[in-house]
Every structure is written in structure tokens, then in C-alpha cells.
Design a binder for these strands. Structure first.
Length: 960
RNA sequence: GCCGCGAUGGCGGAAUUGGUAGACGCACACGACUCAAAAUCGUGCGGAGCAAUCCAUGAGAGUUCGAUUCUCUCUCGCGGCACCA
């Protein structure tokens, strides 16, 4: 028996697959198609580390199984090769980025080749190839013609180190995702894609993607951040001039006590000559401008702002005068860049109002409904209304408050007492405190805000109660008490609690609101659900809208505004339009020409691609122009419209451009007439399975879905969603638990692993490490197990025998394994698939001889994981053709079921015995059998079983 | 702060309509082979106990004949978002 020598075997079979074109994908087939895709890599100078191939191995395993199952499989690979690292390398080393990029690609390709993938390299694509980016530019022009690509002059994120503009998606905590420096806000001309026009479709279509991870969809929903509300106009003194605000809470309109503009809001400048304190305002504007986004968010605890002295708006309904402020807690980029401030019902406005002593006007009284539990509000039974005082009682000498627990219900809160007709809350409080608690010398201190409503089911009286609580603070003068009735004593339990203990003592949110007021917090948002309760509100101090609940008030108030053309319903998104230009060299040139006479003109389609010219210096200019601006020969062109002198756009596209549609180009990579041929697109689309890192959830996967929907709208593709099924790969961490990085010196190169253990061991190990989507640390020890497993299978060749009746148990395991491996590969549970094959190997290697047929079946299901290894064994079994042209084994359901099983016997829920029994044993048989067991008799202690529960094929439980 | 996910031996992990917790692999210990070592093979391997047995799936409670699995509360860890009005 020759040794298992992966080095020899792997090279041999890789060459064989090449020669026999095993991996070549035909565009025509009678078989069903299966398109499985990896997120293509950025070919960095560092080469691959062992983390990169994890996802590729997984798709390769699936691809190989699907091939064997009779699918026409498309499994391509390419390069996302534009981007900053290559450019920065070029700047440092004076090498053209193209040269460095192609060198890196060669390295990557060589490394990938060693792992034995099924990639069809005749379909390789490269986003930096002019024949590829011709179509990236072409799509941009289509967007431009549809008004989806436009020039904007708004302030944008500027990275001072990389000297380029960045999209929101390129930021991490207000810092450049690449270099980590804080970004500045700079008003600059730039190209922007109107992705917000697709926001609703992108949001709604997430529901059509059942095979995407729920977490990713949720991230996208949050990123899109749809919110429904109203746009409301607050008239300025000047006729037909307004401050327009966006709000999700038009119901709080009567609570507006001031209006705030973002410092960047253009109105500030327009109002300049009306502002009496301009120097002060200007100073604030300058300070705000200097602050980076990071500083702005870091300083979020302390809100700042300046009043625009002399400027007022009119309330759109009451016509009252309302002061106007500027403050940088209002974002210029969201909504209208202005808000109506309602300090009584918005945390941020509340904070600001407190700091600057602005009026706080309550217009929503809390309404707490108990939804769950015994005191849950019952629908359709009568409601009984009642006024009551909620008495917060302070200790006579210590800093403690009196907590009350209702013994029957477990409610914890304050002393509550009914207010009789004509009685004042203060008097009712004093009376109730004495009655309930016995404390005799009570003094009313002050009310704690307005009414809090609560609805719940009153168990004792058997009706719904709508309570109108009037919270108030009382103080005991001393500890003197009167005797309370026995009845009262049995109702409550009293406890003196420190303020910090009180919050967790309280069981109901209505009482929490009262407690918060004592702490000085009078802000109430409402419209929430918290476990078992729903928080709503009832309008007050809102003229004819008084008494309405929040939802109804929103409708009615917006309707009222609409009558006067001062407001309308409005939907806003957190998602911003996609800032699409970069002031750098190594990207697709934006195919636009600027003509003095004709303005912004599209490069005619026949002139595409607009190729990147050679430059001497790749250094970014820092002026907002790319290095391309310095090449007069390239920049100066004739206007395609009028023939006059014109200049090319010098900004380039972001790295995300090319990756937004690359999966389409694999279908038809060499087409010079179209982005993709329609027939081929129809055959291969959509991508059936897409595997890659979760870090792309709100970038690549948002952009690609947008790009695809646009291509759908212009008829290039025939499906609305590009990726039917999505799966995330978990990172492979270094052995020290950190990320693999040059910086830490903990990078493991797959080449070294392959040299020592072989590619098949690497493949098996990476699939065996743990659940596929979970991050795991690399373990060099761990890979030994994979190699040992292969060795074990290898040496089984020594005991192969021709047909004979194999052991039933072994056959049983074999067919169970075929079943499990097939299912597990489909569901990306590679680790358990391999574990099961290891069990099979352990069992088989213990047998004296193994039949060739059974061994062949094993080799076939192992083949997707260890393809070179399997081919070698397959050939030594006497086969001439590749194992991957063979049909995937089917398990025999009869053989997959065993004849006996181990019956577990429980007595009172604890396992007391196990008995090996026939699979088809009857329930009566089981009961009879277990009574014979000594152990059962011992635990029964002579008693009769109360109940016997039999779970077929598993266990029997005896209750004594 | 908000949203999502997770916590099981020395380690990676397994266990789905709630039914024998720790499959499989690594590490470790002992034995066989060997002059010796490596490799390989065999045995053991959650904790306590001589044993019967008891305890154990982040902590606490609940439902159940039976809970790693379901419900509630809490702690810790990871990921995302973060003044979005």
C-alpha cells in the first residue's frame, strides 16, 4: 500500500480537471441551472490568509455536490480590484496601480489554484479592466439620463488623510473606514446617486427574501430607516416664507415652544439681516463648522445652541409667536434640517429646553394600558372611570420613600386613594395616607405634574377601570401612627425605600412615570409597547383636539394643516443618497463632460469606456479634484454636443461601483455589445446562492440591490432581487483570538498549511472547525484531526473485498451518513456532516473487510470536501472517469433505519435504566418489558405507577 | 441608549415538533509496538464519591412526568446603529 501523499495527488488531479475541462460551465444544458457565488476578493498585496478560502471552500462543496446531483453549475471567481490600497501603494512605490494589481491577482490565483476549486476561469472578471468598467460607466450614464445621477453641492464627509469624499456607508463612528481619521464636513461638488428613490422598494422587497438571514434584513431595514410623519410649515413674518420641519409627532403640535434650525440650514443666511444678535450667531456657526461629526456626537451630552434674536415663526394653528434657535443637535442632512421642538414629549428637546430655560408645555397626558396578566385590560366589558391621587410619601427624617405592595396582586408602587366628588387631590391624599398606612401627621408638598391615565381590569369589582391619577408629593412630619383596620392591614405591605431602590421596586409603568417626575423628569414620549403594557397618550391643552389619543390626533391635526396648506403627510429615510464621486485616481472615470455652453453632458455611448489615462503622479490633490485634473491632454476635450471646448469630469467612482453588478457579468463575460445577453441572463439569473461576510450587510448588499433594481427598470435584467439565498461566513481568527493581520504577525498562509497537510486536509478542517457562520479561532493542532481522518479512510483500501453481505449495523450507519451529508451540505452544516463521516470511518475501519460498493459510496459523499483525495481513491477502485461526473448517491430508507434501539427508562423524570429493544416493539410490549427490570422495581419501591408515557423509538417515562 | 445574536468539559463544538447532555475532533493520561522516539493502534477522559448515587448546559425563577431546548427576570460577551425629530 502506497502512502497518502497529498502533494502528488493534488497536483495530478488539478491538472486532470483542467485538461478534461471539468469546471467549464456551458451556457446550454438540459439540466437545471444552479448559480452559486462567492463575494469576490480585493486582491491585496498581502495575499490570501487561511480565513479567505473558508467561504470559497463552502461554495465549492455545495457546487460539487450540485454538479453530482445533475445541476448545470455556475461557480465563478473574479477581482474587485479598484480601490485605495493599490493606489496608496502606487504613491509610495511609484508603481502603476495596474501593475501592482495584476501582480496581486496572479498571486491570489495561484494560491486559490492550490485549494482545488471548481472555478471556471474562462469567466474570470476584473473590475479594473476597461472592457468591464465600460459597462459600469454605461449604467452610470443610464442613471444620469433617468435623473438618478446628479451633481450636488451639499456638505459631505471628507477624509483629510485619504483626501477624498466618502459615502455614509464608508464611515465607522464618524471616521474614515480605511484610515481611521475623523472625517470633516465640507461643502463640495460631487456626483450623487438617488438611491433614496428606491428606498421603499428595497425595504418592501426584503420580505420577498425568505432565504436571507433575518439579522441582515433587520440591519438593512434599520439602515434604510423609514419613518412616517408630517412636513409642517411654520410661517415667518415675511409673506410666503416658512420654516419647514419634519416630525413624526404632529400630535404634539400644540406643545411646540420653539423651532430649531441646523447650523448648515440655508435659511440662517437668508434671515441674516433680521437677526439682532448676528455676531453671536456667526460665532456659533463657525464653531459648529469646525467640529467634526465625531466631536459633534461625542459632545452629545451637552447640547448647545443660540437663539436667533428678532426672528419668530407663527404657530400654524394657534398663530402664536414662536422663537427660533439654531443648534447642532439638529442634523442638516435629515428631513428638512429643521425641527419643531416639543420639550414635554421629546427627550432631546427636553434636555435643550432645560439647559436654556425654555418653556415646557405638556400636551399629551400618559395613558398606560395593562395588556397582559390578570389585571390586563379586557376588551368589550364596561369601563368604570375614577379619579385618584397617587401619593408619593417622603420619610420624616431620612431620604426614603414609602413603597406599597398590594398583597393580592403583587403590584408595587405608591399609596393610591380615590378622590371624592368636590374634593381636592391634596386633601384626598392626606386622608388616604392616614387610612391606609396609619401615619397620622401628613403634609401636602406639591403636585407632580398633570394627570396620568391608566386602564386595567379591576379583579375585585370585575370591571375595567379607567383611572385618572393625580400624582402629588407628601411629607410625614413624624412617625406617629394610628391603628389601622385589620382589613387595611391585610391589603398592603409597607416598606421604606431609598430613591435608588425605588425604580426597580415599581412594577407598573404608570407609577414609573410618577416616580420619574419626582426625579425631575417630566418628559413623556408615549406610543411605546413595553412588556405587558402599551403606552399611549391623550391630548390636552390642544384646543379642539383635546381628548384624542395619539394616533387619531396625528391624522386630525395633519388634516387640519392640509386645509391651510401648512402641512402634509411625509415619509423620511435615514438612508442618504449615495455620494458617488471620489477625488482619487484608481477608480472608474465618471463619463461626463463639462461644457461652458451646454453644461453637464454625457459622454456618448460609442466613446465608452472612458479609460484611465497614464499619470506621472497618483498623489491626491486635496483640492477636491482627482490627480486626473492635472492631465491637460486627457481633461480638455470637445463638447460632444456643440463641439466647443469642454473638460472631462475628473472624479472617479467609489470601489463599490464595480462590485454592484459583477455577478451579472460572469454570465456573459466577453460580451462587447451589452452588459449581459438577455437570453443568458434569463437562463442564469438570479444568483441561487450567495456566500460572503456579514460586514457587507449595509454596503455592498444595499448598493447591489439598488443597482440591480435599476437594471430591472431599464430592462437589462428580468428579476427584481439579485440574490435568492444569502449566507454569512464566520471569520477565522488567529490562534491568539485576534483578527489575522500583518500588524499582529499572526497570519497563517494557506500555502504553508497545504505544503504540510495537503489542500484536502485544509478543506476538511475549515469546514469542520465549527458552525459555518460563526467566528472561530484557527488551531494548527486541529488540522491534524482532519489529516488523520483522511489517512484512516486511505488505509481502508487495504481491506477492500468484492461483494459480500456487510454487517447490518455498518450498512445502517452508511445510509444514515449519506442522508445526513446530503442534507447538511444543503443547509451549510458542514461540521456535522464531517463528524458523521468520521463516525462512519471509525466504524468501517474496525470491520474486518469492507465491500468495494460500500466504500465507493463513502468516497462519493466525501468527494465535495476532499476532491483530490476522492478522485485518487475513485481511480484506484478502477474508474476511468472523474468522480464528479458520477451521480450523487441516494440513501436507502430501509437501510437507514436500524432494527433495534436503546430504550431509555425514566422514573419521575430521571433515567434509571436503558434496555436494547426491537424497533417495532408495541407500547404494551414496552410496559410489560420495563416491569421486569430490576432497576425499575427498585425505584418503584413497591408502588403502582400513576402514569406511563411512551415516546416511540426513544423512551418510556414512569410517573410514581 | 436602541436593535440583533450568543453563553454547554481543559479547548473547538454536538444534541429541533421538549425525551438517554457532552456526538465528532483536539489536548491530556495510561497501555501496546520500539533499543529509543515519532507515527500508529487500544483504553480512559464534566465534577464529587470505594460504591450505590448525587451535582452539572452563564445566574435565578416558572411551566412539565421530563427543559441545553419553551416563558419571565438578571449578568456577561459579540455584532450593528447611534442626537434620524
Amino acid at each position: 500500500m502506497k502512502k497518502y501523499d497529498p502533494k502528488k495527488i493534488e497536483k495530478k488531479w488539478q491538472e486532470f480537471w483542467d485538461k478534461k475541462k471539468i469546471n467549464k460551465t456551458d451556457n446550454k444544458s438540459d439540466q437545471p441551472k444552479y448559480y452559486i457565488l462567492d463575494m469576490f476578493p480585493y486582491p491585496s498585496g498581502a495575499g490570501l490568509h487561511v480565513g479567505h478560502p473558508k467561504g470559497y471552500i463552502a461554495t465549492d462543496v455545495v457546487a460539487r455536490m450540485k454538479m453530482m446531483q445533475g445541476y448545470n453549475v455556475l461557480h465563478p471567481m473574479g477581482w474587485d480590484a479598484f480601490g485605495l490600497p493599490a493606489e496608496n501603494y502606487a504613491i509610495a512605490n511609484k508603481v502603476h496601480p495596474k501593475v501592482a494589481t495584476y501582480k496581486n491577482i496572479a498571486t491570489f490565483k495561484k494560491q486559490l489554484g492550490k485549494i482545488g476549486f471548481t472555478y471556471d476561469w474562462s469567466r474570470e472578471i476584473n473590475t479594473t479592466d476597461p472592457e468591464y468598467y465600460r459597462w459600469t460607466q454605461w449604467t452610470f450614464l443610464q442613471m444620469f439620463q433617468k435623473g438618478l445621477a446628479y451633481e450636488s453641492f451639499e456638505p459631505v464627509n471628507w477624509c483629510p488623510v485619504d483626501k477624498t469624499v466618502l459615502a455614509n456607508e464608508d464611515l465607522e463612528n464618524g471616521c474614515c473606514e480605511r484610515c481611521g481619521s475623523p472625517v470633516e464636513r465640507r461643502p463640495m461638488r460631487q456626483w450623487v446617486l438617488r438611491i433614496t428613490k428606491y428606498a421603499d422598494r428595497m425595504l418592501n422587497d426584503l420580505d420577498k427574501l425568505p432565504k436571507w438571514p433575518e439579522a441582515i434584513k433587520e440591519m438593512q431595514r434599520n439602515w434604510i430607516g423609514r419613518s412616517e410623519g408630517a412636513q409642517i410649515k411654520f410661517p415667518l413674518a415675511e409673506k410666503d416664507k416658512f420654516i419647514e420641519v419634519f416630525t413624526t409627532r404632529p400630535d404634539t403640535l400644540f406643545g411646540v415652544t420653539y423651532v430649531v434650525l441646523a447650523p448648515e440650514n440655508k435659511l440662517v443666511d437668508e434671515l441674516k439681516n433680521k437677526i439682532n444678535n448676528w455676531p453671536e450667531v456667526e460665532k456659533y456657526l463657525n464653531e459648529a463648522k469646525k467640529k467634526s461629526d465625531l466631536e459633534r456626537t461625542e459632545l452629545q451630552k451637552e447640547k448647545t445652541g443660540v437663539k436667533l434674536d428678532g426672528v419668530f415663526v407663527m404657530h400654524p394653528i394657534t398663530r402664536e409667536k414662536i422663537p427660533v434657535w439654531i443648534a447642532d443637535y439638529v442634523l442638516a442632512s435629515y428631513g428638512t434640517g429643521a425641527v419643531m421642538a416639543v420639550p414635554a414629549h421629546d427627550e432631546r428637546d427636553y434636555e435643550f429646553a432645560k439647559r436654556y430655560n425654555l418653556p415646557i408645555k405638556e400636551v399629551i397626558q400618559p395613558l398606560v394600558t395593562r395588556e397582559k396578566g390578570e389585571d390586563g385590560f379586557r376588551r368589550n366589558i364596561p369601563v368604570n372611570e375614577r379619579h385618584a391621587v397617587v401619593a408619593v410619601i417622603k420619610h420624616w427624617s431620612e431620604d426614603k420613600y414609602l413603597g406599597v405592595e398590594w398583597k393580592k396582586t403583587g403590584w408595587k408602587g405608591f399609596v393610591i386613594g380615590g378622590i371624592e366628588n368636590g374634593e381636592k387631590a391634596a386633601d384626598a391624599g392626606v386622608r388616604e395616607i392616614v387610612e391606609e398606612s396609619g401615619y397620622k401627621n401628613v403634609k401636602f408638598v406639591r403636585p407632580l405634574g398633570g394627570i396620568v391615565h391608566a386602564q386595567f381590569y379591576q379583579m375585585v369589582k370585575n370591571h375595567n377601570r379607567l383611572a385618572h391619577f393625580e400624582p402629588a408629593l407628601f411629607q410625614l412630619e413624624d412617625g406617629e401612627m394610628v391603628e389601622t383596620s385589620d382589613e387595611e392591614k391585610n391589603l398592603h405591605e409597607f416598606k421604606w425605600l431609598k430613591p435608588e431602590e425605588f425604580s426597580s421596586y415599581i412594577t407598573h409603568p404608570d407609577m414609573q412615570i410618577v416616580w420619574d417626575r419626582l426625579q425631575g423628569n417630566y418628559c413623556y414620549g408615549g406610543n411605546e409597547k413595553i412588556d405587558g403594557f402599551s403606552l399611549d397618550g391623550i391630548l390636552t391643552a390642544s384646543s379642539e383636539f383635546d381628548g384624542l389619543a395619539i394616533a387619531e390626533a396625528k391624522e386630525k391635526i395633519v388634516a387640519e394643516l392640509e386645509k391651510n396648506h401648512l402641512g402634509k403627510k411625509q415619509v423620511n429615510y435615514k438612508l442618504r443618497d449615495w455620494v458617488f464621486s471620489r477625488q482619487r485616481y484608481w477608480g472608474e472615470p465618471i463619463p461626463i463632460i463639462h461644457c461652458d455652453k451646454c453644461g453637464v453632458v454625457a459622454v456618448p455611448e460609442k466613446d465608452l469606456p472612458v479609460e484611465l489615462p497614464k499619470v506621472k503622479n497618483y498623489e491626491p490633490t486635496g483640492t477636491g479634484e482627482s490627480p486626473l485634473a492635472n492631465i491637460a491632454k486627457w481633461v480638455n476635450v470637445e463638447c460632444p454636443k456643440c463641439g466647443g471646448p469642454a473638460k472631462r469630469e475628473t472624479n472617479t467612482m467609489p470601489q463599490w461601483a464595480g462590485s454592484s453588478w459583477y455577478y451579472l457579468r460572469y454570465i456573459d463575460p466577453k460580451n462587447s455589445k451589452a452588459l449581459v445577453d438577455k437570453k443568458l441572463e434569463k437562463y442564469w439569473s438570479p444568483v441561487d446562492f450567495y456566500v460572503g461576510g456579514a460586514e457587507h450587510a449595509t454596503r455592498h448588499l444595499i448598493y447591489a440591490r439598488f443597482w440591480h433594481k435599476f437594471l430591472f427598470d431599464i430592462g437589462v435584467v428580468n428579476y427584481e432581487e439579485p440574490f435568492t439565498r444569502l449566507q454569512n461566513v464566520g471569520l477565522i481568527m488567529a490562534e491568539d483570538g485576534r483578527k489575522m493581520s500583518k500588524r499582529w504577525g499572526n497570519v497563517i498562509n494557506p500555502d504553508d498549511v497545504i505544503l504540510k497537510f495537503g489542500a484536502d486536509s485544509l478543506r476538511i478542517y475549515e469546514m469542520f472547525m465549527g458552525p459555518f457562520s460563526q467566528a472561530v479561532a484557527w488551531s494548527t493542532n486541529g488540522i491534524i484531526g482532519a489529516r488523520r481522518f483522511l489517512e484512516k479512510v486511505w488505509f481502508m483500501q487495504e481491506k477492500l473485498a468484492d461483494s459480500f453481505e456487510a454487517d447490518k449495523k455498518l450498512l445502517n450507519t452508511l445510509h444514515q451518513t449519506i442522508k445526513k451529508v446530503s442534507e447538511d451540505i444543503e443547509d451549510m452544516r458542514f461540521n456535522t456532516a464531517i463528524a458523521k463521516m468520521m463516525e462512519l470511518a471509525n466504524e468501517m475501519s474496525k470491520a474486518e473487510k469492507v465491500s468495494k460498493e460500500n466504500f465507493a459510496l463513502f468516497v462519493q459523499i466525501l468527494a465535495p470536501f476532499a476532491p483530490h483525495f476522492a478522485e485518487e481513491l475513485w481511480a484506484s477502485l478502477g474508474h476511468k472517469k472523474s468522480i464528479f461526473t458520477e451521480a450523487w448517491p441516494k440513501f436507502d430508507p430501509k437501510l437507514a433505519v436500524s432494527e433495534t434501539f436503546t430504550l431509555a427508562v425514566q422514573i419521575n423524570g430521571k433515567i434509571r435504566d436503558t434496555i436494547e429493544v426491537e424497533a417495532e416493539i408495541s407500547e404494551a410490549g414496552v410496559k410489560e418489558l420495563i416491569m421486569k427490570s430490576e432497576k425499575v422495581q427498585k425505584w418503584l419501591e413497591g408502588k403502582e405507577p400513576k402514569k406511563i408515557i411512551y415516546v416511540k423509538g426513544k423512551l418510556v417515562s414512569v410517573v410514581v
